[in-house]
């Protein structure tokens, strides 16, 4: 649970620090004068969807941190732990996901500059590469199964399948959002709405790339 605790403490500390600045030296019982200054409004860059994504990422962080905690705890527990071999294809998949993330970053930049053609291309490439990653993961599962590393034969295998499946499920959810952004582009939504959708996708993909890198690294190390 140490991993989870550290992350939860970090998230809580960031939250408490921010809160402290809001409440430090504030005297809530003093009423503001109408002619005086109203408190500063929220900066326009802090939009509700962005904050919403941030909160969602905190939840997803918690999900993966807890699974990884369970992984580490179980690994320490018994001598029966036998990590499965990691097929070489995983490196290819990692590359595909990294490129997908990059493509979405390009799409975001294009949306910011109003380069519509580029935006469409980059978005399509990003989605395609993500699909390639998912298919690749499926092939890895098949390869492991063919080599006799079944889900139920060792806890290490079970954790491998669980972590990859959880990660893939989050990407699939991302693809649903990606599909909606695509529909929005073709439905002729305004530039602002387009950009808002693309940026959320890009950030979510970067996050899942980071999660995958950590999970993959963890499995490589054991």
């Amino acid at each position: 649970m140490t991993v989870t605790l550290v992350l939860v403490v970090l998230m809580m500390a960031a939250f408490a620090g921010w809160l402290f600045r809001q409440s430090f030296n504030v005297r809530p019982w003093v009423a503001a004068s109408a002619r005086g200054q109203l408190p500063a409004p929220i900066p326009p860059s802090v939009t509700a969807p962005r904050v919403g994504l941030g909160v969602l990422l905190a939840v997803v962080t918690s999900v993966f941190a807890l699974t990884v905690s369970a992984y580490l705890m179980r690994r320490e527990m018994g001598a029966d732990w036998q990590s499965p071999p990691l097929p070489g294809l995983l490196w290819g998949n990692t590359l595909a996901l990294a490129l997908a993330s990059l493509a979405l970053q390009v799409a975001w930049q294009a949306a910011r500059r109003g380069a519509t053609r580029r935006l469409h291309q980059a978005l399509a490439v990003g989605g395609g590469l993500t699909l390639a990653f998912l298919v690749g993961q499926l092939v890895v599962w098949r390869q492991l199964e063919a080599a006799g590393y079944y889900l139920s034969s060792n806890p290490a295998n079970a954790f491998f399948y669980l972590l990859t499946a959880l990660h893939a499920a989050h990407l699939l959810g991302g693809l649903v959002a990606w599909g909606r952004v695509l529909a929005r582009l073709h439905g002729g939504a305004g530039a602002l709405r387009q950009r808002a959708g693309v940026e959320l996708c890009a950030l979510y993909w970067h996050f899942l790339l980071l999660v995958w890198a950590l999970v993959f690294g963890l499995m490589l190390s054991s």
């Binding site: 809001q22 809530p28 509700a48 904050v51």
Partner: peptide, 16 residues
């Protein structure tokens, strides 16, 4: 969470 963080009316600071 996001409503409390983002949608408070003007003058509604966290400490109010």
């Amino acid at each position: 969470v996001v409503t409390v963080l983002q949608a408070r009316t003007r003058g509604m600071t966290l400490m109010r």
